[in-house]
Design a protein around this nucleic acid. Structure first.
Lengths: 149, 149
DNA sequence: TCTAATTATCATGACGATATGATGATCTAT
DNA sequence: ATAGATCATCATATCGTCATGATAATTAGA
């Protein structure tokens, strides 16, 4: 798998939040249940995303997590980079410390374009791009008072 | 990093063998030293490559490892797949068990092409393609009796 | 057959990623 | 202030990867 389990959880949780509408605030317990992900583990992940400015959190009754910005402005790279290292210029397929056009490893020239396309996928794709249907993103769903989902 | 440390060692060792000429037989100790890789660990890796038909091994004096086929016919995927799982059709970015055109995850359509380019890089690039200069690959170097390299 | 060379394999340990359970800190509503 | 809800954090457990050291098995050559 390209991404670590942790990064996958982070992506799915962020997508889950986006799916709840642009200003939805959702509790860790709800996200954990919807994603079938360990609660405390997810809590740590969401906290890291909040520190990174991807989400905001609020405690106490009515609290939870929400997107810090509109889904269309949140890039996958912002989520993933908190946990995994994306392929960088310096990220050599053969593990060399330095690997550049000037000082390339054996694989550098052939690998460069592929590596770049991976990096650009994460940099240029937004959470909004991946949300199941854009509709939910623009429909402010306010069911704060309906415990029966 | 895209590849595990083990897979990187495997690739570098195979490239190292290719660099010694088409029919070179090289000892684990020599490869380990040239690559600055733990000897016993490398031994296990090379053994796995031999089981997989990428290399052949022979024990005793004069023994060592050599490429099972010409470098141009050994694909990177053959080496890497023994240790890492390459992105498959079933390999979902979001970790879903099934993820296809019919039953796609949120990222499937946008991720597909990128994933495919990664897979094809490993499937369509040979060890020979990456050998520093093709010259060595076509120059039958027979220095079986010259211990001084 | 004996010895040295060399790969094959086993037992073990260090470490990080993943995960669980318990407790602390903070917020809202009363 | 108090209580309950909710996120924050800590201590710990588990597992796989990476790595080391010791020993076994096999082979070539004297």
């Amino acid at each position: 798998m390209i991404l670590s389990q942790t990064a996958v959880y982070a992506l799915r949780a962020t997508l889950c939040l986006a799916g709840h509408g642009p200003a939805a605030r959702v509790r860790v317990d709800d996200i954990a249940e919807q994603l079938s992900v360990p609660r405390n583990y997810l809590s740590k992940i969401l906290h890291a995303l909040a520190r990174a400015g991807v989400l905001t959190s609020s405690r106490g009754p009515g609290g939870g997590f929400q997107l810090a910005r509109p889904a269309r402005e949140l890039m996958l790279s912002e989520v993933v980079e908190q946990f995994d290292e994306l392929p960088e210029e310096s990220g050599c397929l053969l593990g060399r410390a330095v690997c550049s056009d000037r000082d390339p490893c054996a694989a550098h020239h052939r690998w460069k374009d592929v590596s770049l396309s991976v990096k650009e996928f994460f940099r240029e794709t937004s959470i909004g791009d991946l949300s199941p249907d854009g509709a939910a993103l623009f429909t402010p769903i306010e069911h704060t008072g309906t415990p029966e989902d």
